[in-house]
């Protein structure tokens, strides 16, 4: 009876291990993400977007100031 209980518990533990593995819960926050460098072209696009954002925000503020 006691042995049967231990076997059941062991089965459950095994099942839980498998479940945690299949659900990736054990390593949910541990999947490695390697750093990559952005290519020059992509960097140039982002710098363009940076300037574009700054310019557009200024224009929106000017537009907004006409209303106040």
């Amino acid at each position: 009876m006691v042995t049967e209980g231990k076997e059941n518990e062991s089965d459950l533990e095994k099942e839980l291990e498998e479940f945690l593995k299949s659900e990736e819960l054990d390593e949910y926050d541990k999947i490695p993400v390697e750093r990559v460098k952005l290519s020059r072209g992509v960097k140039a696009v982002f710098w363009f977007l940076r300037i574009y954002i700054a310019l557009m925000v200024v224009l929106v503020v000017i537009g907004f100031s006409h209303v106040i």
Binding site: Y28, V33, V36, L38, F46
Partner: peptide
């Protein structure tokens, strides 16, 4: 990826673009 958007940008492309 099991990661949020900010974390992905931060870890994949670095602090500068992440903070951007």
């Amino acid at each position: 990826t099991h990661r949020g958007h900010a974390e992905m940008i931060w870890k994949r492309y670095g602090k500068f673009w992440g903070s951007f």
